[in-house]
Amino acid sequence: MQVEVGTKAPDFELRNQHGESVSLSGFRGEKNVVLLFYPFAFTGVCTGELCALRDELPHFVNEDVQLLAVSNDSPFSLRVFAEQEGFDYPLLSDFWPHGRVSREYGVFDEEKGCAVRGTFILDKEGVVRWTVINGLPDARDLNEYVQALKSL
């Protein structure tokens, strides 16, 4: 079941592309979080979306906001992906137990074995304030994220 607007986002701790542990609760009280789930590194739509975020990074990583991008890839794959594309924000690995966090947020596709395109905007207290879920082939609109962040 998908996490609903108005509810507390499930906490998690995952490794980023550098093998460092990142927990959602580490941002509580300090930053709003854009939590973005995407299917796989190195795929066309995902790469396009993450590059668009990179190109508009000041909107998504600043003193008030932290972007966390989560996929079911291994941290090793994510490191190469981040280096190749110049991503300076955390790419988190929900690789093992496979898809645990994606399942908690209701965005794991059991048949395909990966997360669908789910975005959750969380306020500084960790409450979900906005969300959008798109199918695997459908890119998301970054302008919607910017508007949702402005409303916090």
Rank of each mutant, 00 (worst) to 15 (best):
Q2P: 01
V3C: 05
T7L: 06
K8H: 09
A9G: 12
A9H: 09
D11Q: 10
F12N: 12
L14I: 04
Q17S: 02
Q17K: 00
H18F: 09
E20V: 02
V22D: 00
S23I: 01
L24Q: 03
G26N: 05
G26C: 02
R28E: 01
N32T: 05
N32H: 15
L36E: 02
P39S: 12
P39G: 12
A41C: 08
F42W: 11
F42R: 14
V45P: 05
C46F: 05
T47M: 10
G48K: 14
E49T: 07
E49S: 12
L50P: 09
C51Y: 00
L53P: 02
L53C: 10
R54T: 05
D55V: 04
H59T: 01
N62V: 04
A69H: 07
V70S: 04
N72R: 06
F76T: 07
S77D: 04
R79G: 02
R79Y: 05
R79L: 05
F81Y: 15
A82C: 03
Q84F: 04
E85M: 12
F87L: 14
F87P: 01
Y89T: 03
Y89G: 00
L91N: 08
S93I: 08
D94W: 08
P97N: 10
P97Y: 07
H98Y: 06
G99W: 11
S102T: 09
R103T: 10
G106H: 12
G113V: 11
V116W: 07
I121Q: 03
L122Y: 06
K124S: 10
K124H: 00
V127D: 06
V128S: 11
W130G: 06
I133F: 08
G135S: 15
D138E: 12
R140T: 13
V146I: 15
Q147W: 01
S151A: 15
L152N: 09
